[in-house]
């Protein structure tokens, strides 16, 4: 039972880290709270369904969705950044309201175009791993591995590329970065696109182990907020560590007690963090 709890928790943690990373990046660099982040995840899943149906093949549909969904969602994110967030000058309060608006627009457009029902997408590969006590979905483990690779990719992007350097510079000080010739406006757009793209990627990976529906963005949004607040807004390392903390504890508490209790404890943990260390476990002190 402990093994299953840790295994299930680890898979949850990898996916959660991937979704929360986008939210954390956007906050870290742009200082805005993107409430529509869960909808980018949902769009990834929905595009995956369309790709699966267009190709009528689970493997090619998956590959197509992996390539296309993050790009389309990235463009949607850039569009929102350019025509909405930039217009309100990235004001923290206004952007919260604006992104709530984006959330509803995306959700309702999906409802109109995709419909209200949950639609299944077949996994590109389907196999069951038999342990002596129980079986587990092989695809779920693949999701964890692919999420881990994506996380490494983002890490490399931030640490080893010029774009990453610019992002980190913008995060540290927007004005000085601008003075030194960093195209900060473009960096903002890129970060918002990257955040959305990562969420969409997570949506593509996750949809075969659940189903696509227009309301599926809410739960990952709440969990991402929990992770990002605990880890420290803007801290990539904190986000990943918090994702594992929440994911694995969620797995263990769910198996031994109740899944609802796991959610309650996670929320309680957030409250404690906000009282004791508002900047999060690894967050920089803002005040």
């Amino acid at each position: 039972m402990v093994f299953l709890a840790v295994l299930d928790g680890t898979v949850t943690a990898f996916v959660l880290a991937l979704i929360a990373l986008g939210l954390s990046l956007v906050f870290g660099v742009m200082r805005i709270v993107n409430v529509s982040h869960g909808e980018f995840f949902m769009l990834g899943a929905v595009f995956s369904w369309f790709a699966y149906h267009w190709t009528a093949d689970s493997v090619w549909g998956f590959v197509l969705a992996l390539l296309i969904a993050p790009v389309i969602v990235g463009f949607i994110a850039v569009f929102s950044e350019r025509f909405i967030l930039r217009k309100v000058d990235y004001n923290p309060e206004s952007t919260i309201v604006a992104t709530i608006g984006i959330l509803y627009v995306i959700q309702q457009l999906t409802l109109m175009g995709f419909g209200p029902e949950a639609r299944p997408v077949e996994a590109p590969i389907y196999f069951r791993i038999s342990f002596p006590w129980f079986g587990y979905s092989g695809y779920k483990l693949l999701v964890a591995v692919m999420s881990g690779l994506c996380l490494c990719g983002v890490w490399l992007l931030l640490k080893r590329t010029k774009l990453g350097l610019y992002m980190r510079a913008t995060q540290q000080d927007y004005e000085i970065a601008t003075t030194f010739g960093v195209p900060t406006k473009k960096i903002y757009a890129s970060v918002f696109a990257l955040g959305g793209g990562l969420a969409a990627l997570a949506g593509v990976l996750v949809v075969p182990i659940r189903q696509a529906d227009h309301l599926m963005g809410l739960e990952p949004l709440l969990l991402s907020f929990i992770v990002v607040i605990i880890g420290g807004l803007g801290s990539i390392r904190g986000t990943i560590i918090a994702a594992f903390l929440i994911g694995i504890s969620d797995g263990i508490i769910s198996v031994f007690y109740e899944p609802t209790l796991a959610k309650m404890l996670a929320t309680l943990f957030v409250v404690m963090i906000l009282i004791i260390k508002p900047s999060g476990l690894f967050g920089e002190n803002q005040q």
């Binding site: 299953l4 709890a5 299930d8 129980f134 587990y136 182990i209 659940r210 769910s254 198996v255 899944p259």
Partner: peptide, 8 residues
């Protein structure tokens, strides 16, 4: 959306 933890 995930059920494995219940079957155990």
């Amino acid at each position: 959306s995930s059920f494995t933890r219940y079957f155990v």
